[in-house]
Amino acid sequence: MLAELRQNPWRLLLAINAAVIVGLFVHKIQLPPYVPYIHLLVDYHFGFIKRALIGAIVALFAAKVPVWLVFALGGATWLVTSGLYAKLFQKTFGFTATTLPLFVFIAGSPFFLKNFMHTLGHFDIYGCALAIILLLMPASSLLFVATAALFSIILVLIHHIHLLMYVPTIITIVVTRHYLIYGCNRTNVAFGIIAVLVVSALFFAAQFLGTMPITDADFVAYLKTRMADPSRTDLLQFAYIWYQPLSKEISDTWAWLPHNSLGIPVFALLIWLHTPLWRCFSALIRALENDMHCRLVIAALIGVSLAYLVMFAMVFDYSRWISNWAVCMFLILHAVKMLPADKETPLIPAEDQKTNIFGLILTLIPRVGIVRPF
């Protein structure tokens, strides 16, 4: 039995990943949810403001927001996202002994579900979940493009940084699943352009017009009326982010850049540990039967990566950004697999010793973090 585990350890690695996720949840619920909790308190009481959609939805059902709701809502979102991804993997690759190493490398990556558990309650996971839904739903009609536009609008209302974080990946999914497969005509191209313009306009409105119209003292006083326990004033210490201008965020990011850049070698190492996965991704791209599809996919990967580079220059939550970049790569991999190919692509080998070692190391890494590695 031990010899069999050494030759094909992937089921064991999957079980270890599950245990790590449970441990992360137990650890997470013992920590104060500073940023996630305040996002549940902020709504549209004072008019249109940025980062308020989730709080506005919560306000429809709860006049007072308990702290445990952060973990309940975040945990439910994590479970739904995990289930959606399992469904997507089954649809794209299927669950077999041959595909299990690929599943472990993606689902067990410290960039993905484990880091979403570490950042439980943050807004990143909503972009991932909605992108997965787009990968699962039929893409033949304009309804698909309209749904993608609606999802992008929702994400920008949740947090305007989604325009850089997940909207480029959503655009890539729409292009690969709709325009490349079903073709371009005047109607769907015009519809797509209008959708991009609307989402972009909403972003600028949220960024520059969605400012809080009252003083910070009055804002905090209102937030206390939404708290189930107003004595927990420590959970309101991040209220300033609704007043901080973009110029301040950029200056803070560049001030911390020398210190935070020390984590870049760690990010590079984590990306390198995914080498078997990147080789599989590269093989899927090379196997596409249409050269134009291949070139467009590469351009999309560059475009998504450039969007994250802009984020790196603006906001210093580097561990979150690099983790979500990797998640976007995972999702685009599935989109590429759905394109017509002229040959079958070998996946990650199940019995390669080096691959097994990389898989074990990634399994044992519990998460990447929020700002700095680990």
Rank of each mutant, 00 (worst) to 15 (best):
L100K: 01
F123G: 01
D124A: 08
A190R: 10
D252Y: 01
T363N: 07
L163W: 12
L2S: 10
H159R: 13
L41W: 03
P346S: 05
H39S: 11
K114T: 02
V327A: 08
E4V: 03
V315T: 13
M227W: 06
M338E: 14
R11I: 00
N185C: 01
L236Y: 06
L163N: 13
T119Y: 10
Q7D: 14
A139E: 04
I49C: 02
I161E: 07
M292Y: 07
I348F: 02
H39K: 04
A335W: 08
E351T: 15
A283P: 09
P213A: 03
V20E: 03
V196E: 07
P101M: 11
L12T: 14
N290F: 05
I322G: 00
G359Q: 05
P373Q: 05
V67G: 01
S109R: 02
Q237N: 15
F111I: 07
F93W: 15
I241A: 02
M117N: 05
F312R: 03
Y318S: 09
T98A: 14
W242D: 01
L246A: 10
I285Y: 05
A341K: 08
E289V: 10
A205Y: 10
V196D: 04
F374Y: 15
W78N: 03
Y222K: 04
K354M: 08
C128S: 13
F191D: 01
F208E: 07
V35Y: 08
I365L: 11
A307W: 00
G47I: 07
